[in-house]
Amino acid sequence: MKTKMDFPTINQRRPDGMKENGKPYRVLIVDDSMFVTKQIEQYLTSEGFDVAATAVNGQDGLDKYKELYPNVDLVTMDITMPVMDGVTALEKIIEFDKDAKIIMISALGKQDLVKKSLLLGAKNYIVKPLDRKRVLERVLMTLKK
């Protein structure tokens, strides 16, 4: 009879959300839609990331970034949001921490907006609708930049 040990476990590899020291990367999700936040959260936690906080607009995102700092590795930033839009929040977070790793995640794919975001210091830009594989790829790419 086979014992449990005979089966290789699926999770023998280190999940992508873990650093080499075994601790998870900490992510702040900024989006005004509960639907999108839940979606990104599911993608990230399935790979072992720690969603340290979520924020519902740019101002909230900026405040939470400052609260979490320096224990935050990555931010996903929506653009179309009430109170403060994501491009303004990007600018303000970079002002506070020029090394912040921010990925814009927007339904808008306008070239000038993509360019502007990258010029302001965003590390990556993903256009919604979201796809699990693409989000995880870009997140890893950004963390390794």
Partner: peptide
């Protein structure tokens, strides 16, 4: 939240296409 995000995604993609055609549109949440 899901239906509003669907509306947001469709409108934003349309605005992106309009932008490529030379029209400047913006959208509100």
């Amino acid at each position: 939240a899901t239906i509003t995000e669907l509306a947001n995604m469709i409108t934003a993609q349309a605005i992106t296409k309009l932008h490529d055609l030379g029209f400047q549109f913006d959208l509100t949440p």
